[in-house]
């Protein structure tokens, strides 16, 4: 028996919007690293500009959630979905800010000569985006096991960050003139590390959606 048709439709639409926002954020992260690699200042500017769209999407989803709560009184599993969505969009919005931050660093670097070819930073980017994409899939599939697995993968990003940090530290010690450029790259790596960390927050919320339990899963090193 089909019941609460409008309500079910709204609930589904909200989750679709979260996926859409997730892909906007993923694209922003990928583009910010791409712009850094290729010194594409125009693309970096685009990332900065597009962050507004991510922020607006977040407010639009939040409003839909508020309206649904006010008019349809979601309960139990549905209530947990809505609460999770409210948390997810906050995490996603913040990840968008990190991507914007990376783009701004690229703009700051401008046409300075590269310090070194980027190797580990693109790896961090790929890993973090892979985790992000899968965490949202886990949300849609209500797959708490997958969410817990993804959380464990945060260590890989942390290790890459350590590697980037150590390597750049050596550059700076050898030649203090590289300090400015090296520090900027550390910021980039740090932003990526934070992105992966926020994916683990999403994963915790997926577990909450499925089980109703709120718990921190595997605290990050940073």
């Amino acid at each position: 028996m089909a019941i609460r048709i409008t309500y079910n439709k709204r609930l589904r639409e909200i989750q679709d919007e979260v996926l859409l926002m997730g892909s906007m954020v993923e694209k922003a992260i990928a583009r910010s690293i791409d712009a850094l690699k290729r010194r594409d200042l125009k693309l970096a500017e685009q990332v900065v500009e597009d962050d507004q769209k991510i922020n607006q999407k977040r407010f639009a989803i939040e409003e839909s959630c508020i309206t649904l709560i006010a008019t349809q009184q979601p309960m139990a599993g549905d209530l947990r979905i809505i609460i999770t969505v409210l948390n997810l969009i906050t995490e996603l919005e913040r990840m968008g800010d990190y991507a914007e931050g990376i783009a701004r660093i690229t703009l700051m670097i401008g046409d300075e000569p590269p310090l070194k070819p980027l190797i580990d930073i693109p790896r961090m980017d790929e890993k973090a985006r892979d985790m992000l994409r899968r965490s949202l899939e886990a949300f849609i599939n209500r797959d708490s096991d997958e969410a817990i697995r993804i959380t464990a993968e945060d260590d890989e990003v942390d290790n890459l960050y350590d590697q980037v940090f150590r390597e750049l530290l050596i550059f700076m010690m050898e030649d203090p003139r590289t300090i400015t450029r090296a520090t900027r790259l550390i910021w980039v790596a740090h932003n990526l590390e934070r992105i992966a960390d926020r994916v683990t927050n999403i994963c915790e919320r997926v577990v909450f959606t499925v089980t109703g339990k709120m718990e921190e899963i595997g605290a990050s090193k940073y």
Partner: peptide
């Protein structure tokens, strides 16, 4: 009961699905 019921039938009832 209203946030995390154990029984599927309770869940269906409090979410208004039957």
């Amino acid at each position: 009961i209203f946030t995390n019921p154990e029984d599927k039938r309770t869940e269906d009832y409090v979410t208004g699905r039957f």
